[in-house]
Amino acid sequence: MSVVEGIIAGLLVLGVFFYVAGTVGLLRFPDTHSRLHALTKADNLGLGFIVIAAGLHWGDGWIAGKLALVWLLTLFAAGMAAQLVARAALKAEGGE
């Protein structure tokens, strides 16, 4: 196993770790808004590590650009969706 392959394997393990953290947070956290924290932050970090691993494995500039676009889009969508779902959940609880 070359050095690059070792790094890729490490990144993949990190990616899985943060995905699992997101799931565990979604299941364990006590209230809706705390769960939203887990969903917004952990998952997208996991995707980030996986995207970097895939980019290293491919070693192609255009593909790396597309991977970056996928990740940027999910990051942006996660941040915006988090606010919207947080507001909707507040409303469902009948305000504060």
């Binding site: 995905y19 997101g22 979604l26 998952d43 995207v51 691993a53 491919w58 779902v85």
Partner: peptide, 29 residues
């Protein structure tokens, strides 16, 4: 229990799906 909780679970499936698609793309080049 809330509708938002169920929605969040669906969102997690979405971001999981993106990750899986990227991984399969890399595995098969």
């Amino acid at each position: 229990p809330g509708r938002a909780d169920r929605m969040m679970s669906a969102q997690l499936i979405g971001s999981g799906g993106v990750g899986i698609a990227v991984l399969i793309a890399a595995a098969r080049s």
